[in-house]
């Protein structure tokens, strides 16, 4: 019985810690927070609901003409290229940020943005 309980506790701990790491904003998200929030528009648009959508399509935010005309769709590959060098991918973008050179950091940020759907805690 005690073994079963130990297994149960262990499983629960692994599951719970997996959930926390999977859903919480990664530490590097602070780099985005100069201009962005998950849940509301700031100097930059909110991130909730962005993943998989066409660029510059969220209501209530005034995008640059360059991004509006870009016809990009925010899938993993496009986000990765854009975060590496926004101005190189969309010349004239108002995201005037040099970019993130570390591919691992970009991947962590994209993981988080992908999870930011309307039922995510950070989107409420």
């Amino acid at each position: 019985m005690s073994v079963c309980r130990a297994v149960l506790v262990f499983t629960c701990c692994v599951f719970c810690s997996f959930n926390i790491s999977a859903y919480a904003a990664p530490p590097h998200y602070v780099m985005c927070m100069g201009c962005h929030s998950p849940s509301y528009n700031r100097t930059g648009p909110k991130h909730c609901g962005v993943f998989g959508q066409l660029a510059a399509r969220q209501e209530g935010f005034q995008y640059s003409e360059a991004l509006t005309m870009s016809r990009l769709r925010w899938d993993r590959q496009t986000l990765d290229k854009f975060l590496e060098s926004p101005a190189a991918i969309v010349p004239g973008t108002s995201m005037t940020f040099a970019g993130i050179t570390d591919a691992n950091v970009r991947a962590q940020l994209i993981d988080y943005i992908e999870l930011l759907t309307t039922d995510h805690n950070d989107c409420r």
Binding site: V30, M31, C32, M33, G34, C35, T43, T96, F97, A98, G99
Partner: peptide
């Protein structure tokens, strides 16, 4: 966030 924004700009 502002520190990052300026560092990136």
């Amino acid at each position: 966030g502002a520190v990052s924004a300026y560092a990136g700009a």
